[in-house]
Computed example of a mutant assay.
Amino acid sequence: MAGLAMNKDAATSALPLLALPLLALLAACNMGADGNASSGESEQGELTGARIGAPFTLTNQNGKPTRWDEYKGQYRLVYFGYTYCPDVCPVDLQRIMQGFAKFEKQRPALAAKVQPMLISVDPQRDTPAVLKTYVAAFHPRLIGLTGTKEQIARVAKDFAVIFNAEGKPGATDYLVSHSRTPYLFDGDGKPVALVPVDDPGTPDVDEGTPDKVLAFLDKWIK
């Protein structure tokens, strides 16, 4: 793990425990540098058919209830992380949202069909007020979602995300290890593919540049 966030291969290796179809798992483990299936032959994303995602109600950065189904008809770009993450989360979010901003400039009508969201895996510290300041630093359309520990645990399970707070019970200064799985869902809320992020296991290759995120969005957003 880098910065206590698991890379994509580590995350996908745990997905069979959460009943992901084997075919989707194999495709995810053969990702190309652009974050898509390496064969490049299929127009289906590597997560097509995977059982990831479910309806939820969480609290957004303005303190208002937000339902997953509010975004029916929109693509949903979902990142699980937390605001106190020292390195991986802010870098991933910055690059993803920079790529999204480029897509927004080049394809504004299509970009309007995408809702980016950060779902916190640290509800103890990530209050709506904390999230509001944080998400505003990346893009005005990025929303931050939090909830009770029980709500976040349920959502994480439904979205095949593993996380664990590391530190002494009751401590306020701790890190949260979590699977690094930025997802793209289609307008029906079905998973499409993993958004490209840099893999720390390949130091000579940068898989998560904003331009690669742009290419990813250009490929999948219709």
Score class of each variant (00 low, 15 high):
A109M: 07
R141H: 12
L20S: 02
R76A: 08
V205M: 02
N62G: 12
E46R: 07
W68P: 01
L194S: 01
I52K: 03
F185G: 09
K190A: 06
V91N: 07
L17G: 01
E41C: 08
K212H: 03
C85Y: 00
R76L: 13
V91A: 09
G45N: 05
I162G: 00
F56C: 02
G208S: 06
Y134P: 06
T12N: 01
F185C: 10
A11M: 05
I152M: 11
L194G: 00
D87H: 03
T59L: 13
A109C: 05
G35I: 00
I162E: 02
D122G: 03
K105I: 00
T66K: 04
V195F: 10
K212L: 13
L47K: 06
R141F: 04
D204K: 14
V91D: 10
S120Y: 14
V88N: 00
F56R: 07
K64F: 01
L47M: 13
A37R: 12
G73N: 05
A33K: 11
T48V: 13
P203W: 06
Q94K: 14
E104M: 00
E150G: 02
P203K: 07
Y75I: 10
G63C: 09
L15M: 10
G45F: 13
A215S: 15
D158M: 04
V135S: 07
Q44T: 15
F138L: 07
T48S: 12
N30K: 14
V135W: 14
R107E: 15
D186R: 04
L22G: 11
A101R: 15
P128Y: 12
V130R: 15
I52T: 07
Q61N: 02
Q115C: 04
L4K: 14
C29L: 12
A50G: 06
P55K: 07
A27W: 00
K157C: 04
D173N: 14
P196D: 06
K219F: 15
A54R: 05
P196Y: 09
N62F: 14
F80V: 00
G208N: 08
T127M: 12
L18F: 04
A54E: 03
K212M: 08
Q106M: 13
D92I: 09
L217A: 10
A14S: 11
V176N: 09
R125K: 13
E104A: 04
